[in-house]
Protein backbone atom coordinates (compact mmCIF):
# COMPACT_ATOMS: atom_id res chain seq x y z
CA UNK A 1 0.00 0.00 0.00
CA UNK A 2 1.12 3.55 -0.34
CA UNK A 3 0.63 6.59 1.84
CA UNK A 4 -0.61 9.78 0.21
CA UNK A 5 -0.30 13.32 1.49
CA UNK A 6 -3.82 13.40 2.92
CA UNK A 7 -3.22 10.24 4.92
CA UNK A 8 0.02 11.66 6.31
CA UNK A 9 -1.72 14.86 7.37
CA UNK A 10 -4.36 12.75 9.12
CA UNK A 11 -1.74 10.68 10.97
CA UNK A 12 0.11 13.87 11.96
CA UNK A 13 -3.14 15.18 13.37
CA UNK A 14 -3.55 11.97 15.40
CA UNK A 15 0.03 12.33 16.67
CA UNK A 16 -0.55 16.03 17.53
CA UNK A 17 2.35 17.21 15.40
CA UNK A 18 1.74 20.08 13.01
CA UNK A 19 3.40 19.47 9.64
CA UNK A 20 4.09 22.27 7.15
CA UNK A 21 2.71 21.72 3.67
CA UNK A 22 6.24 22.22 2.38
CA UNK A 23 7.44 19.23 4.38
CA UNK A 24 4.60 16.84 3.52
CA UNK A 25 6.15 16.05 0.15
CA UNK A 26 9.52 14.80 1.49
CA UNK A 27 7.82 13.09 4.42
CA UNK A 28 5.57 11.18 2.00
CA UNK A 29 8.59 9.99 0.05
CA UNK A 30 10.51 8.91 3.17
CA UNK A 31 7.60 7.13 4.81
CA UNK A 32 6.72 5.27 1.62
CA UNK A 33 10.26 3.96 1.25
CA UNK A 34 10.23 2.88 4.90
CA UNK A 35 6.87 1.12 4.51
CA UNK A 36 8.06 -0.62 1.37
CA UNK A 37 10.93 -1.97 3.47
CA UNK A 38 8.63 -2.95 6.35
CA UNK A 39 6.22 -4.77 4.08
CA UNK A 40 8.78 -7.49 3.40
CA UNK A 41 7.10 -9.12 6.39
CA UNK A 42 4.15 -10.00 4.17
CA UNK A 43 6.32 -12.71 2.56
CA UNK A 44 5.97 -14.70 5.78
CA UNK A 45 2.97 -16.81 6.67
CA UNK A 46 2.34 -16.21 10.37
CA UNK A 47 -1.19 -17.66 10.66
CA UNK A 48 -0.19 -20.21 13.27
CA UNK A 49 2.25 -18.05 15.22
CA UNK A 50 1.43 -16.62 18.64
CA UNK A 51 2.37 -12.93 18.95
CA UNK A 52 5.23 -12.24 21.32
CA UNK A 53 3.99 -9.84 23.97
CA UNK A 54 6.75 -10.18 26.57
CA UNK A 55 10.36 -11.18 26.16
CA UNK A 56 10.71 -12.22 29.80
CA UNK A 57 9.84 -15.65 31.14
CA UNK A 58 8.22 -14.05 34.14
CA UNK A 59 4.87 -12.46 34.75
CA UNK A 60 4.62 -8.91 35.99
CA UNK A 61 5.02 -8.53 39.73
CA UNK A 62 2.36 -7.01 41.87
CA UNK A 63 3.05 -4.91 44.93
CA UNK A 64 1.12 -4.01 48.02
CA UNK A 65 -1.43 -1.33 47.40
CA UNK A 66 0.01 1.30 49.67
CA UNK A 67 1.37 4.81 49.38
CA UNK A 68 5.15 4.87 49.00
CA UNK A 69 5.77 8.53 48.26
CA UNK A 70 4.00 11.85 47.90
CA UNK A 71 4.10 15.42 49.14
CA UNK A 72 6.39 16.38 46.29
CA UNK A 73 4.20 18.98 44.59
CA UNK A 74 7.06 21.43 44.39
CA UNK A 75 9.29 18.89 42.64
CA UNK A 76 6.51 17.92 40.26
CA UNK A 77 5.80 21.53 39.29
CA UNK A 78 9.45 22.58 39.18
CA UNK A 79 9.91 21.88 35.47
CA UNK A 80 6.56 23.08 34.17
CA UNK A 81 6.77 25.74 31.45
CA UNK A 82 3.90 27.64 33.05
CA UNK A 83 2.39 27.23 36.49
CA UNK A 84 0.16 28.95 38.96
CA UNK A 85 1.18 28.08 42.52
CA UNK A 86 -0.43 24.66 42.69
CA UNK A 87 -1.37 23.90 39.11
CA UNK A 88 -0.07 23.40 35.60
CA UNK A 89 -1.38 26.14 33.34
CA UNK A 90 -2.60 25.54 29.77
CA UNK A 91 -4.29 27.81 27.20
CA UNK A 92 -7.93 28.45 27.96
CA UNK A 93 -10.11 25.40 27.14
CA UNK A 94 -13.59 26.58 28.22
CA UNK A 95 -15.21 29.87 27.45
Amino acid sequence: MSLDKEKIKHVAKLARISVDDAKVESLTKDLNSIFKFIEQLNELNTDKVEPLTSILNQSLRSRKDEISDGKIREKVLKNSPKENEEFFVVPKVVE
Binding site: V11, L14, I17, L31, I34, F35, T46, V49, E50
Partner: peptide, 29 residues
Amino acid sequence: KRRILIGTYVLSSGYYDAYYLKAQKVRQL
Protein backbone atom coordinates in the same frame (compact mmCIF):
# COMPACT_ATOMS: atom_id res chain seq x y z
CA LYS B 1 8.76 13.00 14.00
CA ARG B 2 9.16 10.40 11.28
CA ARG B 3 9.18 7.59 13.82
CA ILE B 4 6.24 8.98 15.79
CA LEU B 5 4.25 9.13 12.55
CA ILE B 6 5.20 5.55 11.61
CA GLY B 7 4.26 4.40 15.10
CA THR B 8 0.98 6.30 15.15
CA TYR B 9 0.06 4.87 11.75
CA VAL B 10 0.86 1.22 12.54
CA LEU B 11 -1.17 1.43 15.75
CA SER B 12 -4.10 3.29 14.20
CA SER B 13 -7.52 1.75 13.78
CA GLY B 14 -7.69 -0.65 10.84
CA TYR B 15 -3.90 -1.12 10.53
CA TYR B 16 -3.00 -2.65 13.88
CA ASP B 17 -3.35 -6.27 12.75
CA ALA B 18 -1.54 -5.75 9.48
CA TYR B 19 1.49 -4.15 11.07
CA TYR B 20 1.84 -4.33 14.84
CA LEU B 21 0.33 -7.77 15.38
CA LYS B 22 2.22 -9.10 12.36
CA ALA B 23 5.48 -7.72 13.80
CA GLN B 24 4.83 -9.33 17.18
CA LYS B 25 4.38 -12.66 15.44
CA VAL B 26 7.58 -12.33 13.44
CA ARG B 27 9.34 -11.28 16.64
CA GLN B 28 8.27 -14.62 18.08
CA LEU B 29 9.86 -16.42 15.09
